Simulated scan of single mutants.
Amino acid sequence: MIIRNSTEADIPEIFRLYREAAAHQAKVKATVVWPTFERQLVDTEVAENRQWKMVVDGQIACVWVITFEDAQIWEERNSDSAIYIHRIATNPAFRGQNFVIKIVNWAKAYAKSLGKNYVRLDTIGNNIRLIEHYTSAGFDFLGVFNLKNTTGLPEHYQQGPAALFEIKL
């Protein structure tokens, strides 16, 4: 298993994994389904080295994005020194291998190397299964919060409250 930044050549596969994730979400009750994300968003993330991939046996097994601020979602907590994980999408050929724990271990080490104090993520809706999944990976569940301003966020943020999670380093 290798973790490295995604490249421009990976973008078609990133979008395939997003489509696969959305199709999987559509099958799960009480899950908000991801919209089609804008190409420019992913281009920017790749150019800024914030789009990551996990490679197993030469295949992209999982992708995710990080950011260093997330004011609309984390509001006053955004002033904390943190990395924020978004859009974890697993290749269906690799599902069930608990990549979230591997991402968490990577994120903790990466955040510490940057002098950050938290690793955070969110999900939309009150998805009990996903809440249990993230807490079993080491996140503290902070609760479900209505976002005050979703202007400019991807459209799925309009579909419900945000469940917030963090790991204090």
Rank of each mutant, 00 (worst) to 15 (best):
G125F: 12
L130M: 14
E155N: 13
Q40M: 09
F145G: 00
F68W: 10
H156K: 09
W34L: 14
Y110D: 04
I103C: 01
G152V: 08
N117E: 14
R4L: 11
N105Y: 10
A162L: 04
S113K: 07
H86R: 01
D140E: 14
Y18L: 07
F68N: 06
Q72V: 02
R87P: 02
I83C: 02
N78W: 14
T123F: 05
N127P: 08
K168D: 07
F94P: 04
A82Y: 07
G152N: 07
N127M: 05
S79C: 10
S79D: 14
N117F: 14
A47H: 14
Y134P: 01
Y110G: 00
F94W: 09
L17K: 01
D43C: 10
A89K: 09
R120P: 01
V46M: 04
N127S: 11
W106S: 01
D80Y: 14
H24Y: 15
Y118S: 03
K108D: 00
Q159A: 13
N91L: 05
R4G: 09
Q158I: 00
H24A: 08
I83F: 04
F94Y: 15
N126M: 03
I14H: 01
V104W: 07
E132A: 13
H24P: 02
L130R: 04
V104Y: 07
F139M: 04
L153F: 05
A163R: 05
D10V: 00
A47N: 14
R87T: 08
N105T: 08
N5F: 09
D140R: 15
V33M: 02
A93P: 02
K148W: 10
K27C: 04
V63E: 06
I66G: 07
M54G: 01
I60D: 04
P12R: 03
L114V: 03
T44L: 10
T90V: 15
E166L: 02
N98D: 15
N49C: 12
G125H: 10
F141N: 10
I85F: 04
M54P: 00
H24I: 06
Q40I: 13
W52T: 05
Q158C: 11
L169K: 01
N146P: 05
D70C: 07
A21C: 12
K108I: 13
W34F: 15
I124F: 10
T31F: 12
P154K: 00
Q159P: 09
V63D: 00
I88L: 09
V28E: 12
I11G: 09
V119W: 08
K27T: 13
A9L: 13
Q51P: 00
P154N: 02
H133R: 13
E166K: 06
A162V: 06
I124M: 12
I88V: 15
K108E: 07
E155D: 15
V33Y: 03
H133W: 11
E48W: 08
K53I: 08
Q25F: 11
V119E: 04
G115E: 06
D43A: 07
R19P: 06
N91D: 05
I167P: 01
G138D: 03
S136V: 02
E76G: 06
L41R: 07
N78G: 02
R129W: 01
E45Y: 09
T123S: 11
C62P: 00
E155Y: 10
S79M: 12
T31E: 13
E20R: 05
P92D: 01
A21M: 09
S136H: 13
N78H: 09
